[in-house]
C-alpha cells in the first residue's frame, strides 16, 4: 500500500507542485484545509508557501497536539516556511511557531536578499543518498537558527555557511524546495518517502 501523506493547505499559495512531486514518488496525497485532520495523519508534509503568521494562523489551535505528534515519531517534512514554523518564533512575524525545533527564525544577512536560485546542500544524511547533484532551489529571506544539535545540512551563501537542513525525531526540515529541484529533488523526496515508510 502506498504511503499516505497529509499535505497541509494553509490557504495561501499553490500546492500543485509539491502534491504532484509526492505523487510522482509513489505517495498517496490528501490535502487538508482543517488542521485538525493533521492529528490523524500517517505522514505530514508542511509545504513552503506564504508568510510565517499566515501559515501559523490555521495551525495555532492544534499547536500543542501537533508538536506532541511530531515529537513522538510521526514522519514529517517541512519545506521552507513549512520548516521555519517548526521553530518557536520568527523575526518575520509575531505568532508563535510549533516549537518543535529549539531556536528561532532570523533574517538572512547578505548583499543580495532573497537568496534566490540553486545552491549546494552539503549533507551526509540518508535522504541525500543517490542524489547526484547537490544543487537545490532556494527562495528565502529568513533562515532557521537552531539552539540545539539538529542541523544535518549546510549551504554557503555570500561567504557564510548557513544551516539549511534539519532533523528532530522523525521530522525533517528543508530551507530548500525539493519539489522545485528537478531530478535532485525527486531523488530526495523518494528517499523521504522510503524513510517515512521505514519508521511506520
Amino acid at each position: 500500500m502506498p504511503l499516505r501523506v497529509t499535505l497541509t493547505d494553509y490557504g495561501v499559495g499553490n500546492l500543485y507542485s509539491i502534491r504532484r512531486s509526492l505523487e510522482n514518488c509513489g505517495a498517496e496525497v490528501t490535502t487538508v484545509k482543517d488542521m485538525k485532520d493533521v492529528l490523524d495523519a500517517e505522514c505530514i508534509v508542511f509545504p513552503g508557501v506564504g508568510a510565517f503568521d499566515k501559515t501559523m494562523e490555521k495551525l495555532q489551535p492544534y499547536r500543542e497536539e501537533i508538536r506532541e505528534k511530531l515529537l513522538t515519531g510521526t514522519p514529517a517534512l517541512g519545506i521552507c516556511i513549512g520548516m521555519q514554523i517548526m521553530y518557536g518564533s520568527s523575526a518575520e512575524g509575531t505568532t508563535p511557531g510549533l516549537g518543535l525545533f529549539d531556536g528561532d527564525v532570523v533574517p538572512l544577512v547578505g548583499k543580495v536578499i532573497p537568496h534566490m536560485g540553486w545552491n549546494q546542500v552539503v549533507s551526509n544524511d540518508a535522504l541525500m543518498d543517490g542524489v547526484e547533484d547537490n544543487n537545490f532551489y532556494f527562495a528565502h529571506s529568513y533562515r532557521g537558527n537552531p539552539s540545539e544539535d539538529i542541523t544535518i545540512g549546510r549551504t554557503e551563501y555570500e561567504g557564510t555557511e548557513i544551516p539549511t537542513f534539519f532533523r528532530k525525531a522523525n521530522t525533517y526540515g528543508t530551507q530548500f524546495h525539493p519539489e522545485k529541484s528537478s531530478k535532485s529533488g525527486m531523488a530526495f523526496l523518494r528517499n523521504f518517502i522510503a524513510f517515512a515508510e521505514s519508521v511506520l
Binding site: 500543485y16 507542485s17 519539489e179 522545485k180 528537478s182 531530478k183 529533488g185
Partner: peptide, 11 residues
C-alpha cells in the same frame, strides 16, 4: 500555465 506547471519540476 497549468499544463506547463504539470510537466515542470523547476520554478
Amino acid at each position: 500555465v497549468s499544463e506547463t506547471a504539470g510537466k515542470l519540476f523547476v520554478p
